[in-house]
């Protein structure tokens, strides 16, 4: 058995729960979407945990500079404000690049699921929808919904693995 066949055998299970093929199709895609979103949040939490020290350092320094720039503003010192703002820029850039890992971790299961759907259901139109609608079309709404729903769970502390 090839690795693809092993994955395929696992992912097709929810599609075969119902004897009705249309029901199985929609149920399977919904389960796959929620599973992908959950796996994505799980791996994002892992990356966030691995990056927590550097993230705290970069975000912390950017925040400190920002706070100082606010104080400069309050004291009507525009020169100091611009200097602090400029120094915060570098840390912001690093923080943005750091978030690429968390973004990739969040989205990889969804993209892998899309790849599998494209191979397994090549040329299969989605039942009851318009002609060009395929499994990928059906996959997106529950996937985005699941990502949003899961984002509501977990603690909301600034550097918690559960926050974005």
């Amino acid at each position: 058995m090839t690795p693809f066949q092993a994955v395929d055998n696992f992912l097709i299970i929810p599609f075969r729960v119902f004897s009705n093929p249309e029901a199985g199709f929609y149920f399977g895609i919904t389960v796959l979407a929620f599973f992908s979103a959950a796996l994505g949040w799980g791996s994002k939490a892992l990356v966030a945990y691995a990056n927590r020290v550097r993230r705290k350092q970069e975000d912390g320094e950017a925040t400190r500079r920002s706070e100082l720039s606010f104080q400069a503003l309050q004291m009507q010192d525009k020169e100091a404000y611009l200097a602090q703002n400029n120094l915060a820029q570098e840390h912001y850039g690093n923080s943005l690049a750091l978030s690429a890992g968390r973004g990739a971790a969040l989205l990889w299961p969804g993209i892998v699921a899309l790849a599998w759907l494209s191979i397994r259901f090549e040329g299969v139109p989605a039942p009851y929808l318009w002609a060009s609608a395929g499994p990928v079309t059906v996959f997106f709404p529950p996937y985005i919904l699941a990502l949003w729903a899961l984002s509501r769970l977990g603690p909301k502390t600034p550097h918690s693995p559960f926050t974005a």
């Binding site: 199709f25 299969v124 039942p127 009851y128 609608a133």
Partner: peptide, 12 residues
């Protein structure tokens, strides 16, 4: 045809 359930069933 949109309701090409047979095709979906075949793929499943």
């Amino acid at each position: 045809p949109a309701a090409d359930a047979a095709k979906a069933a075949g793929a499943v």
